[in-house]
Design a protein around this nucleic acid. Structure first.
Lengths: 157, 157
DNA sequence: TCGTGTTAGTTTCATATGTAACAGATATCG
DNA sequence: CGATATCTGTTACATATGAAACTAACACGA
């Protein structure tokens, strides 16, 4: 019998078929694999990579914009920024109109690291999806979006 | 193509469509939702819930068996066991044939907590899949298994 | 039975993380 | 104006985590 179907045995729960557990294990396996791509080579962490990815995709941004686009909380963003400033991957300039805000931009070094990581990350994503047909990728894409929406909907009540 | 902005480069990567990132965010959203089910009410953590789930599904087991069935490392299992012993949810008996091994079993209290959590967890899983047809559940099930296999395959090389 | 190697499980230590408190800047409303 | 609220970002503290060192028990060959 396939899993994820309404169970006939009412109270049995097999951990390795339990969707939240499977998602946690899968995400963890994938994250570790990706992190190894840049942890050793560039000495950056997952939050730092995410900041780079946001800046690479959208250009300079404030910390709160990065936060909004990355599902990281502001403490994670603040700490990632601190480390990246230290490492010379980004610089920041205070917004003259609102001196609370600081616009973050990649340095030339940050751009260089970014442009090296992106192909590695994309190759890893492609490897994950190796053997998936176009149709399967579309289905996966939609199912993940729906799961995310359901997960967020279940948060508030 | 002019290279005015990083986002103009051909190989741009949009974080919120990047599969590893999406999996991480989804798993995190789901895990937090589930954890709230038992964190407040029963005072147990995710590793402890996993130990309970293993014991509930397979019966008494040693720490290393729990480890093998749960994708947790032995440190996590050891710490979960220590807390659960303290809380009276499990007890352990030294294996007379091999005194390094300790068989872990739920206490009556552990069984009670387990039997209360299982329906909550299953309801949460059902809520996640609400609106998914049987066919969609089957497809999701298979895609997740294949992704997990691909993710593990990408670990070694 | 001694020595070496292996296994089960625990502890240590350095780092990562989340919550909450915080400081500084701006916004609002009387 | 001026008091208060709100926003941006940082810091402090307590807890969680993972890697590696460690202890105790067993295995097995010389």
């Amino acid at each position: 019998m396939p899993d994820l179907l309404p169970s006939d045995t009412a109270d049995a729960l097999t951990l390795d078929r339990f969707l939240p557990y499977r998602l946690a294990v899968l995400a963890n396996t994938v994250s570790k694999g990706i992190a190894r791509l840049y942890a050793d080579r560039f000495g950056i962490t997952i939050p730092e990579w995410r900041v780079l990815a946001i800046l690479g995709a959208f250009g300079p941004a404030t910390a709160s914009e990065i936060q909004g686009r990355s599902a990281m909380d502001k403490v994670q963003v603040s700490r990632a920024i601190a480390r990246m400033l230290e490492a010379g991957l980004i610089d920041r300039t205070v917004d003259p109109d609102d001196r609370r805000r600081q616009t973050i931009a990649m340095t030339a070094e940050g751009e260089r690291v970014y442009s090296e990581i992106v192909p590695l990350a994309q190759a890893r994503e492609a490897a994950l999806l190796d053997g998936f047909s176009v149709e399967e990728r579309v289905v996966l894409d939609r199912l993940l979006d729906r799961l995310q929406a359901r997960a967020e909907a279940g948060e508030k009540p």
